[in-house]
Write a protein that binds this DNA or RNA. Structure first.
Lengths: 146, 146
DNA sequence: AAAAAAGTCTACTTAATCTATATACATTGT
DNA sequence: ACAATGTATATAGATTAAGTAGACTTTTTT
């Protein structure tokens, strides 16, 4: 499962993506709209800022905005930034690899072999999907039965 | 990430699958071979037995064995039995659905929409893979560089 | 019948980590 | 100067996973 941190990050980025090019949006606005605890969201946006994804502006009229075009930010990138696990097994993770401590022989493990496949399928989808795509999907869903 | 319970279950089933049709295997043997804490493994195998996947025999010469052919047991089934999450979001899970408490409108959520796709891809792979396939994969890996 | 070899069952404990909150500080705009 | 806003770090609280303990039951062997 994704952590709430990852979920909140994605939702916040969707909000910011819709506003790309406009004036900064305040944390509290996003928190209220998306039902995210404000203090928690502060930390998350700060992380995204320190990772170079967001710019921030302090003081009155301040807030956050996207640095890059939402079409150039992939979902998988956000999972990794927020520490969300993509792989279902530690020994299969590309970015957070860890040996399974019970494992007798990783190289010949059939279980691992399947979960490599699962990881590849997941990474494919999530790296081909951008924040802009999330916004588009939302629009499509709204027009189809919103 | 899969829980250790799920991982241990899969590894134990591979051992039992190799032995399908033979005499029962003791918990302690599996625990030793696969580096799984014995007491923990006891609980797991008991669950699998209560789910009808394994039979058990008490007393001297006792142990566990598979009830069904390993080719008829899918990996996804084991994940579900051992409570492992297949979906990456609770609102996307087929068997353990839960509303995301922050979610404003699930039906039009773009984030959810992508993770439905990820879930489908994952379920496809894991439902097409059986315990027998895991064993076969292991053999293939051994012959290719074991 | 007794003893030994397994599995069964329930409860408890520990440890980790995720989630959230609190507090003090820094910067900007009016 | 003051209010609005983000920055940073620390800590508390909640939840769950992981593992452990111990007494019990059934079966086989002697």
């Amino acid at each position: 499962m994704l952590s709430k941190k990852t979920r909140y990050a994605l939702k916040a980025l969707v909000v910011l993506g819709k506003n790309f090019g406009g004036t900064p949006i305040q944390i509290s606005k996003i928190a209220t709209e998306e039902h995210i605890p404000k203090k928690f969201l502060e930390q998350i946006l700060l992380d995204l800022r320190n990772a170079g994804l967001l710019f921030s502006k302090k003081g009155s009229g301040g807030g956050y905005g996207l640095v890059k075009d939402p079409a150039d930010i992939s979902v998988v990138q956000i999972l990794r930034l927020t520490g969300g696990p993509v792989a279902l097994l530690p020994c299969v993770s590309l970015n957070f690899y860890q040996k399974c401590d019970e494992c007798v022989n990783e190289a010949t493990c059939g279980v691992r072999d399947v979960f490599v496949e699962v990881r590849d399928a997941t990474v494919k989808i999530l790296s081909e999907t951008s924040i802009a795509d999330l916004i588009q999907r939302e629009k499509n869903l709204i027009s189809s039965f919103g």
